[in-house]
Amino acid sequence: MPHLPRPRRSRRPGTVVVRLRGRIDARSAEHTGRTLADALGTSPNILEVDLSGVEHLSADGTGAFFTGLRAARSRGSRLAVTHAPPQAAMMLNRVGLLRLLSADEGHGTTGS
């Protein structure tokens, strides 16, 4: 199960950052998705999900990000995935999540 720290406010006004670590797979996807949805409780403009500490993201694990994206949209927030390692970025791209973020949310940053 990934380590899910408490969301924190960014130095950028209106942004909340969640830094994920570990493996995100079928066993942890539901919990991770709930964590992302809960981080939207303060209705930030942007929920930044930092994946720099993610060791592995499975296809099943990407469901957490779709949960987060749906929750963000329902609250009028944007979800931005940042610092994705190559394997995680490839998996997010494979399931169409990066395309959704870049087309519908106006941005989607990975690897930076």
Rank of each mutant, 00 (worst) to 15 (best):
D104F: 06
S112I: 01
R78D: 09
A26W: 05
P13T: 02
T82S: 13
L101W: 05
L36N: 02
R78I: 06
E48M: 12
R21N: 12
S10I: 04
R99F: 01
V95D: 02
M1C: 04
L4C: 00
E48W: 07
V16I: 03
E48G: 08
M1P: 09
P2Y: 04
V17F: 11
L57V: 11
P2C: 00
L69Q: 09
I46D: 07
T109L: 06
T67P: 03
G108P: 01
S77W: 07
G22R: 12
T35S: 12
A26S: 09
A26V: 11
V95M: 10
H83N: 15
L97F: 02
D38G: 14
V54W: 12
R75H: 09
H56C: 01
R34E: 14
V17W: 10
P7H: 15
L98G: 07
V81A: 07
A71L: 03
I24Q: 08
T110S: 12
T15H: 14
T82R: 13
A59T: 15
S28H: 03
A103M: 08
L40P: 13
L40V: 12
L40D: 14
G53S: 05
S102M: 04
L100Y: 10
P5H: 07
L4M: 00
A29S: 07
S52M: 14
D25S: 06
R9F: 12
P44S: 02
R99T: 03
L69Y: 14
G63E: 14
H3Y: 08
G68Y: 01
V95E: 04
P86F: 08
D60R: 07
R19Q: 14
G63Q: 13
L51I: 12
T62S: 03
M1L: 07
A29Q: 03
R6C: 00
A64E: 07
T62P: 00
R27K: 15
A29V: 03
G106S: 07
D50H: 06
D38I: 13
G33A: 06
A84G: 05
S74I: 01
L101F: 04
R75Q: 11
T110L: 14
D60V: 00
A64G: 06
T109R: 13
A39S: 10
V17P: 08
T32D: 02
T62R: 02
S43I: 09
A37D: 09
A29N: 02
T15R: 15
